[in-house]
Protein backbone atom coordinates (compact mmCIF):
# COMPACT_ATOMS: atom_id res chain seq x y z
CA UNK A 1 0.00 0.00 0.00
CA UNK A 2 2.91 2.36 0.84
CA UNK A 3 4.31 2.23 -2.66
CA UNK A 4 0.96 3.32 -4.09
CA UNK A 5 0.75 6.31 -1.75
CA UNK A 6 4.39 7.11 -2.50
CA UNK A 7 3.59 6.90 -6.20
CA UNK A 8 0.71 9.35 -5.84
CA UNK A 9 2.90 11.81 -3.92
CA UNK A 10 5.68 11.54 -6.50
CA UNK A 11 3.13 11.95 -9.28
CA UNK A 12 2.08 15.35 -7.99
CA UNK A 13 5.74 16.37 -7.76
CA UNK A 14 6.33 15.31 -11.37
CA UNK A 15 3.28 17.19 -12.60
CA UNK A 16 3.97 20.32 -10.59
CA UNK A 17 7.66 20.38 -11.61
CA UNK A 18 6.64 20.05 -15.26
CA UNK A 19 8.46 16.75 -15.90
CA UNK A 20 9.23 16.94 -19.66
CA UNK A 21 8.81 13.20 -20.27
CA UNK A 22 5.35 13.22 -18.70
CA UNK A 23 4.24 16.32 -20.57
CA UNK A 24 5.64 14.94 -23.85
CA UNK A 25 3.28 11.96 -23.49
CA UNK A 26 0.37 14.26 -22.65
CA UNK A 27 1.08 16.44 -25.68
CA UNK A 28 1.39 13.42 -28.02
CA UNK A 29 -1.95 12.14 -26.72
CA UNK A 30 -3.67 15.47 -27.24
CA UNK A 31 -2.24 15.81 -30.78
CA UNK A 32 -3.27 12.31 -31.91
CA UNK A 33 -6.70 12.57 -30.29
CA UNK A 34 -7.35 16.00 -31.82
CA UNK A 35 -6.54 14.75 -35.31
CA UNK A 36 -8.59 11.58 -34.97
CA UNK A 37 -11.59 13.32 -33.38
CA UNK A 38 -11.63 16.05 -36.02
CA UNK A 39 -11.59 13.44 -38.81
CA UNK A 40 -14.15 11.15 -37.19
CA UNK A 41 -16.58 14.02 -36.48
CA UNK A 42 -16.25 15.50 -39.98
CA UNK A 43 -16.93 12.12 -41.58
CA UNK A 44 -19.10 10.52 -38.90
CA UNK A 45 -21.71 13.24 -38.33
CA UNK A 46 -22.88 13.45 -42.00
CA UNK A 47 -22.83 9.64 -42.31
CA UNK A 48 -24.69 9.23 -39.02
CA UNK A 49 -27.22 11.85 -40.12
CA UNK A 50 -27.85 10.03 -43.40
CA UNK A 51 -28.12 6.67 -41.61
CA UNK A 52 -30.63 8.07 -39.12
CA UNK A 53 -32.55 10.26 -41.56
CA UNK A 54 -32.90 8.21 -44.72
CA UNK A 55 -34.85 5.04 -45.29
CA UNK A 56 -33.19 2.82 -47.87
CA UNK A 57 -33.08 -0.89 -48.66
CA UNK A 58 -30.50 -2.61 -46.46
CA UNK A 59 -30.59 0.10 -43.77
CA UNK A 60 -30.98 -2.48 -41.00
CA UNK A 61 -27.96 -4.37 -42.34
CA UNK A 62 -25.83 -1.22 -42.40
CA UNK A 63 -26.97 -0.39 -38.88
CA UNK A 64 -26.03 -3.89 -37.67
CA UNK A 65 -22.55 -3.56 -39.22
CA UNK A 66 -22.02 -0.14 -37.60
CA UNK A 67 -23.22 -1.44 -34.23
CA UNK A 68 -20.88 -4.44 -34.54
CA UNK A 69 -17.95 -2.11 -35.25
CA UNK A 70 -18.62 -0.36 -31.93
CA UNK A 71 -16.87 -3.21 -30.19
CA UNK A 72 -13.87 -3.45 -32.51
CA UNK A 73 -10.80 -4.48 -30.44
CA UNK A 74 -8.14 -1.78 -30.56
CA UNK A 75 -5.34 -4.33 -31.13
CA UNK A 76 -7.20 -5.59 -34.19
CA UNK A 77 -7.47 -2.03 -35.58
CA UNK A 78 -3.78 -1.57 -34.75
CA UNK A 79 -2.95 -4.75 -36.63
CA UNK A 80 -4.94 -3.75 -39.74
CA UNK A 81 -3.58 -0.18 -39.80
CA UNK A 82 -0.05 -1.54 -39.22
CA UNK A 83 -0.47 -3.91 -42.18
CA UNK A 84 -1.61 -1.07 -44.43
CA UNK A 85 0.97 1.57 -43.48
CA UNK A 86 4.04 -0.63 -42.94
CA UNK A 87 6.67 -0.57 -45.68
CA UNK A 88 5.19 -3.67 -47.30
CA UNK A 89 1.61 -2.35 -47.10
CA UNK A 90 -0.32 -0.49 -49.81
CA UNK A 91 0.16 2.84 -47.99
CA UNK A 92 3.76 2.15 -46.99
CA UNK A 93 5.18 4.85 -49.25
CA UNK A 94 3.60 7.59 -47.10
CA UNK A 95 5.85 6.75 -44.13
CA UNK A 96 3.02 6.82 -41.59
CA UNK A 97 4.23 3.95 -39.40
CA UNK A 98 5.46 5.06 -35.95
CA UNK A 99 4.01 8.56 -36.39
CA UNK A 100 1.26 10.41 -34.59
CA UNK A 101 -0.62 10.61 -37.91
CA UNK A 102 -0.55 6.80 -38.11
CA UNK A 103 -1.97 6.60 -34.57
CA UNK A 104 -4.64 9.16 -35.53
CA UNK A 105 -5.68 7.05 -38.52
CA UNK A 106 -6.20 4.02 -36.28
CA UNK A 107 -8.04 6.09 -33.68
CA UNK A 108 -10.31 7.54 -36.39
CA UNK A 109 -11.31 3.99 -37.35
CA UNK A 110 -11.99 3.36 -33.66
CA UNK A 111 -14.07 6.50 -33.15
CA UNK A 112 -15.97 6.53 -36.43
CA UNK A 113 -18.53 3.78 -35.62
CA UNK A 114 -19.23 5.43 -32.26
CA UNK A 115 -19.91 8.82 -33.89
CA UNK A 116 -21.98 7.30 -36.71
CA UNK A 117 -24.10 5.05 -34.48
CA UNK A 118 -24.83 7.63 -31.78
CA UNK A 119 -25.46 10.43 -34.31
CA UNK A 120 -27.89 8.15 -36.20
CA UNK A 121 -29.70 7.40 -32.94
CA UNK A 122 -29.86 11.11 -32.10
CA UNK A 123 -31.27 11.95 -35.55
CA UNK A 124 -33.76 9.07 -35.42
CA UNK A 125 -35.10 10.35 -32.13
CA UNK A 126 -35.78 13.83 -33.53
CA UNK A 127 -39.42 14.83 -33.70
CA UNK A 128 -41.09 13.58 -36.90
CA UNK A 129 -42.59 16.99 -37.55
CA UNK A 130 -39.18 18.72 -37.71
CA UNK A 131 -38.71 18.07 -41.44
CA UNK A 132 -42.17 19.27 -42.58
CA UNK A 133 -41.78 22.26 -40.29
CA UNK A 134 -38.45 23.24 -41.85
CA UNK A 135 -39.76 22.64 -45.37
CA UNK A 136 -42.80 24.76 -44.60
CA UNK A 137 -40.52 27.59 -43.51
CA UNK A 138 -38.70 27.40 -46.84
CA UNK A 139 -35.53 25.51 -45.84
CA UNK A 140 -33.37 23.92 -48.53
CA UNK A 141 -31.97 20.39 -48.15
CA UNK A 142 -28.67 21.74 -46.78
CA UNK A 143 -30.51 24.02 -44.35
CA UNK A 144 -32.61 21.05 -43.20
CA UNK A 145 -29.40 19.07 -42.60
CA UNK A 146 -27.69 21.85 -40.65
CA UNK A 147 -30.79 22.64 -38.58
CA UNK A 148 -31.45 18.96 -37.86
CA UNK A 149 -27.84 18.53 -36.69
CA UNK A 150 -28.29 21.55 -34.45
CA UNK A 151 -31.55 20.15 -33.08
CA UNK A 152 -29.81 16.84 -32.36
CA UNK A 153 -26.80 18.61 -30.85
CA UNK A 154 -27.09 17.02 -27.44
CA UNK A 155 -27.06 13.50 -28.88
CA UNK A 156 -24.17 14.40 -31.19
CA UNK A 157 -22.32 15.92 -28.26
CA UNK A 158 -22.69 12.68 -26.36
CA UNK A 159 -21.42 10.83 -29.47
CA UNK A 160 -18.34 13.07 -29.56
CA UNK A 161 -17.65 12.67 -25.85
CA UNK A 162 -18.06 8.90 -25.96
CA UNK A 163 -15.79 8.65 -29.01
CA UNK A 164 -13.12 10.87 -27.46
CA UNK A 165 -13.20 8.80 -24.26
CA UNK A 166 -12.61 5.68 -26.36
CA UNK A 167 -9.77 7.37 -28.26
CA UNK A 168 -8.04 8.78 -25.19
CA UNK A 169 -8.04 5.50 -23.29
CA UNK A 170 -7.01 3.08 -26.04
CA UNK A 171 -3.60 1.37 -25.83
CA UNK A 172 -3.56 -1.17 -28.67
CA UNK A 173 -3.44 1.24 -31.62
CA UNK A 174 -0.94 3.62 -30.04
CA UNK A 175 1.32 0.74 -29.07
CA UNK A 176 1.24 -1.14 -32.39
CA UNK A 177 1.08 1.75 -34.86
CA UNK A 178 2.96 4.37 -32.82
CA UNK A 179 5.63 2.07 -31.46
CA UNK A 180 5.77 3.89 -28.08
CA UNK A 181 8.78 5.98 -29.12
CA UNK A 182 9.96 8.31 -26.35
CA UNK A 183 9.50 12.05 -27.07
CA UNK A 184 7.78 11.15 -30.30
CA UNK A 185 4.83 8.74 -30.27
CA UNK A 186 4.62 7.82 -26.61
CA UNK A 187 1.08 8.59 -25.46
CA UNK A 188 -0.33 8.64 -21.94
CA UNK A 189 -1.68 5.10 -22.10
CA UNK A 190 1.42 3.51 -23.66
CA UNK A 191 3.60 5.40 -21.18
CA UNK A 192 1.53 4.07 -18.26
CA UNK A 193 1.90 0.52 -19.59
CA UNK A 194 5.68 0.94 -20.00
CA UNK A 195 6.30 2.69 -16.69
CA UNK A 196 4.26 0.08 -14.81
CA UNK A 197 6.35 -2.70 -16.42
CA UNK A 198 9.47 -0.85 -15.31
CA UNK A 199 8.13 -0.49 -11.77
CA UNK A 200 7.97 3.32 -12.10
CA UNK A 201 4.62 3.73 -10.47
CA UNK A 202 5.02 7.44 -9.85
CA UNK A 203 5.19 8.33 -13.56
CA UNK A 204 2.38 5.86 -14.28
CA UNK A 205 0.15 7.34 -11.59
CA UNK A 206 1.03 10.90 -12.71
CA UNK A 207 -0.08 10.10 -16.22
CA UNK A 208 -3.15 8.34 -14.87
CA UNK A 209 -4.04 11.49 -12.94
CA UNK A 210 -3.73 13.51 -16.15
CA UNK A 211 -6.14 11.09 -17.86
CA UNK A 212 -8.53 11.48 -14.93
CA UNK A 213 -8.24 15.26 -15.20
CA UNK A 214 -9.03 15.10 -18.91
CA UNK A 215 -12.02 12.86 -18.17
CA UNK A 216 -13.20 15.34 -15.55
CA UNK A 217 -12.87 18.30 -17.95
CA UNK A 218 -14.84 16.39 -20.60
CA UNK A 219 -17.52 15.36 -18.13
CA UNK A 220 -17.80 18.90 -16.76
CA UNK A 221 -18.00 20.34 -20.28
CA UNK A 222 -20.70 17.83 -21.17
CA UNK A 223 -22.89 18.72 -18.20
CA UNK A 224 -22.35 22.44 -18.90
CA UNK A 225 -23.26 22.09 -22.58
CA UNK A 226 -26.22 19.84 -21.73
CA UNK A 227 -27.60 22.56 -19.48
CA UNK A 228 -27.15 25.11 -22.26
CA UNK A 229 -28.67 22.81 -24.89
Amino acid sequence: MDFILEGIAKAFVLLLQGDPETYSAVWATVQAASMSMTASLLVGIPLGYLLGYLNFPGKKGVRTVVDTLLSLPTVFIGLIVYAFISNRGPLGEFGLLFTLTGIAIGQTILALPVVIALTATAVESLDRSLRPTLISLGATRMQIFLTSVREARLGILIAAITASARVLTEVGISMMVGGNIKWHTRTITTAIALETNKGEFATGIALGLVLLAIAFVISFSLSFLRRRA
Binding site: S129, P132, T133, S136, L137, T147, R150, E151
Partner: peptide
Amino acid sequence: SLLPQEAYLLR
Protein backbone atom coordinates in the same frame (compact mmCIF):
# COMPACT_ATOMS: atom_id res chain seq x y z
CA SER B 1 -46.19 27.80 -45.77
CA LEU B 2 -47.81 25.05 -43.74
CA LEU B 3 -48.69 25.10 -40.06
CA PRO B 4 -48.83 21.44 -38.98
CA GLN B 5 -51.30 20.20 -36.40
CA GLU B 6 -48.65 19.89 -33.73
CA ALA B 7 -46.22 22.55 -34.80
CA TYR B 8 -42.60 21.83 -33.97
CA LEU B 9 -40.65 24.59 -32.31
CA LEU B 10 -36.88 24.59 -32.67
CA ARG B 11 -35.06 24.17 -29.37
